[in-house]
Amino acid sequence: MKERQDAWTEEDDLLLAETILRHVREGSTQLNAFEEVGDKLNRTSAACGFRWNAVVRNNYQKALELARKQRKQRQRSLGKHQQVKKTLLYKPTVPSIKDLGINAIESNKDVTLDQVVSFLQSLQQNTSNIDFLHKENERLRKENEEMSKQNKTFSENISKLQQSSISIQEDYDTLMKIMNRARKLVLIEEEQSPTTAFKMDKNGNLEKMAK
């Protein structure tokens, strides 16, 4: 029965992160990775999942995104673009009655109270793991819905920005046409207007000269 309660070390966190990244990269699941780490560290998969989501994951966001991209590239190379089934890399050992030493029926030996308690505790732990899987699935479902809403909002904002950019470009083109017309009119008026000459009379006054 896994009952380890000591604090997580840096080596434990590193093992947890490396195992999860490997599972994601090779097309397995994080839950399957929790099982593997739990067996290696003598911890429950639920404890590993909590440690990952609460502490370790924040330090490996870029690595996790890279692992997901590598998984997609691997799937494309295999020619499986859609509906790719997860491949579990680790098969946890489910304790049985024989594993716990409760084989009195076959060997006609008495079952001890400790063996019964240990077996019941393992069943309870399996139930806890199932509850954790349900909660994790619900969390991922809500996270996916939230991301879908954000993507929709982003798409709408991009569409508005594109429309605004088009309007600005049209206004700019219209303004340039007006300025070009005004510039041409000024040039035409300057060409058509006669040059006026002046001369000074005896009294010092200026008067126009006929051209």
Rank of each mutant, 00 (worst) to 15 (best):
D6R: 10
A7L: 13
T9W: 00
A17Q: 08
E18C: 05
I20N: 06
E26N: 14
T29G: 02
Q30S: 11
A33Q: 03
E36P: 04
K40F: 05
T44W: 04
T44N: 00
R51W: 01
A54S: 13
A54M: 01
V55Q: 10
Y60M: 09
L64G: 01
E65F: 05
R68E: 08
R74L: 15
G79H: 10
Q83Y: 10
K85N: 06
Y90P: 08
K91H: 09
K91Q: 08
P92I: 07
I97C: 10
I97Q: 15
S107W: 00
T112R: 02
S118V: 02
L120G: 05
S122N: 14
Q124C: 04
T127F: 04
N129L: 06
L140D: 09
K142C: 02
Q150R: 11
K152L: 08
F154R: 14
E156D: 11
N157A: 10
K160T: 01
Q163D: 01
I166D: 07
T174Q: 15
L175W: 04
I178Y: 11
N180T: 13
R181G: 07
R183H: 11
V186C: 10
V186F: 04
A197D: 03
F198L: 11
F198Y: 13
F198M: 08
L206D: 02
K208V: 03
K208S: 05
M209I: 15
K211S: 01
